[in-house]
Design a protein around this nucleic acid. Sequence first.
DNA 1: CGGCCGTCCGTAACCGGTTACATAACCTTT
DNA 2: AAAGGTTATGTAACCGGTTACGGACGGCCG
Lengths: 337, 337
Amino acid sequence: MGEATIRDVARRAEVSVASVSRALNGLNNVRGETRERIVAAAKELGYVPHAGARSLSLARAHAIGVVLPDLHGEFFSECVRGMDREASRRGYVLLLSNMHDDSEQSAAALRTMRGRVDGLLVMAPHITPESLERALPAALPAVLINAPGEVAARPALRLDNHAGAHAMVEHLLAGGYRHIVHIAGPESNVDAQERLQGYRDALAALAPDMPVRVIAGDFNEEAGEAAARQILASHEPCDAVFAANDMMAIGCLHTLRQAGKRVPEDIAVAGFDDVPLARYLALTTIEVRIAEIGARAVSRLVDMLEGKGPGGGVELYAPELIARATTAARTGATAHG
Amino acid sequence: MGEATIRDVARRAEVSVASVSRALNGLNNVRGETRERIVAAAKELGYVPHAGARSLSLARAHAIGVVLPDLHGEFFSECVRGMDREASRRGYVLLLSNMHDDSEQSAAALRTMRGRVDGLLVMAPHITPESLERALPAALPAVLINAPGEVAARPALRLDNHAGAHAMVEHLLAGGYRHIVHIAGPESNVDAQERLQGYRDALAALAPDMPVRVIAGDFNEEAGEAAARQILASHEPCDAVFAANDMMAIGCLHTLRQAGKRVPEDIAVAGFDDVPLARYLALTTIEVRIAEIGARAVSRLVDMLEGKGPGGGVELYAPELIARATTAARTGATAHG
DNA sequence: CGGCCGTCCGTAACCGGTTACATAACCTTT
DNA sequence: AAAGGTTATGTAACCGGTTACGGACGGCCG
């Protein structure tokens, strides 16, 4: 037995479907006595409106599609949590679809969203603007999060990775560290690219005589471990490691310590993201308030949907440096000594 | 301007909507030449089928509603990740709705799912079976995760919290610890209740002469810190703490260490969940493979939806103890010395 | 009393797909 | 050549809501 429909309610209350719809949606052109009969009938039948049908006739689904890449743990949940909080506050529900880096699959994911959501939140740090542009249904409002480049005047939220990395290099130099190695993220990831560039630019601006040294990584812990082994085996001097994210920093930290190195006395370690782990390991890092960004993305999208906002424009989020023990200043250090 | 509809495609290809539908859905009763014309027209218009309309006429949304309580970070994302993986593998998409403990709000959340999802995944460790029963649309298939009690023959997945807690107490006793304090979770949370009961039962069975001592908590880190302060201030002996979850164990661990206690020499600490942090802090805990449970829940639900499975029945997941340094055995300890 | 207005309510079209059924064209078969 | 079968396509009903439009009714006015 399927659920009761509006027609069942109409039959039971001995009115037309139009009256049921009006009564249940709180329109005022229904007589009090009729409304009561309808409400009673609806309750007796346990009637719940069919959201799908409703959204079809209203051309409004009150749902937001969320397309995220494969994020590491905490990051993902924080992002979704922020979105969910704001979405439910504004009467929307979230339709989730992970985008497993395959760009073909991503396009398919976006496709299945059409007709069930009013707008899209897309986080795609590893997709080129062109293919994203192509995959996005043109008529669907969308807010981009950390997308590379500008995509067809879509509003976007971007984390200021460059500023964050710059601040970190500055912090390390101020702490007296001179030979700073960077463990980079995936080459195709725009966050990783910007952090790398921030590192390069900061070094060029603040300590042009110091060597630029980059070890490739992929944002995973193992990459950090591998980088640490490489640093240990190398003859080149290195007194600080700045990893493009916390997980690599953590892997690096562990391997260095297991090899007998003292952190930060022998070598400093810093990350990026401020995952909860960072606090416990006293890891210096850059705080990324991802939940806030998620919430803000929803807010902007809903504003667009409800015609309240201009839409366009890129909002930049400045992250904050959190100094902890793994980069404690060297004793007797001077900023440029 | 609105997206192109099937009628636009039909007009452009000079056929009827029925043919378009048939061609695009791969039915074989369309002439090759006609099919090509239709496909070409669809591509030219950038036609994407309207999932809402489709699900209305098919009475199939290929979507699964997920209702979760406010979970702490990693736990949430792991759960959703497991679900998403399995869902996308089987061609479904996830509709997410956090259930912020308010039971009224939860009912509303469930209500908005009707007509947009084919089935429900509900994790509700803090809702009574009766109100859950009342809130669940009767005709919607649902799989319950860690729900208290049995709800109207709904299939369910349950974590064997009792066995996990029992194993932990056994492990601590075997390590030579005698005075084991339990930091409990929220009273209304069924996971917390079962863990507490497991602690009590294990102690009664294995060390009936040892005191049962429970400190109230709420699953948050702060509760662990408060519990640690209480233990430090108390005159009662205590050589081991078993917290109902990792976050409280971590809070406790920190506070104990900051107070100068050595762990595990002065006092052992154990948790429950195996959050990623646990590994780094060398915290002994009980591994809960939540992603696996999430994936399994999706799998069972989809089986039900596609008439492949019997549906009913409770599946119990046995968690595994992971012994780490915070509960290293006392030197010279014997199991019952 | 006739006309006008406002309130309440029902009929039916519509949202964008799917599909049962009808139909037309063409191919066999006897 | 007529009957019967097959195949490709179109027509229209349907999924479950919303809502424009119009009709019925009662009250009020001149």
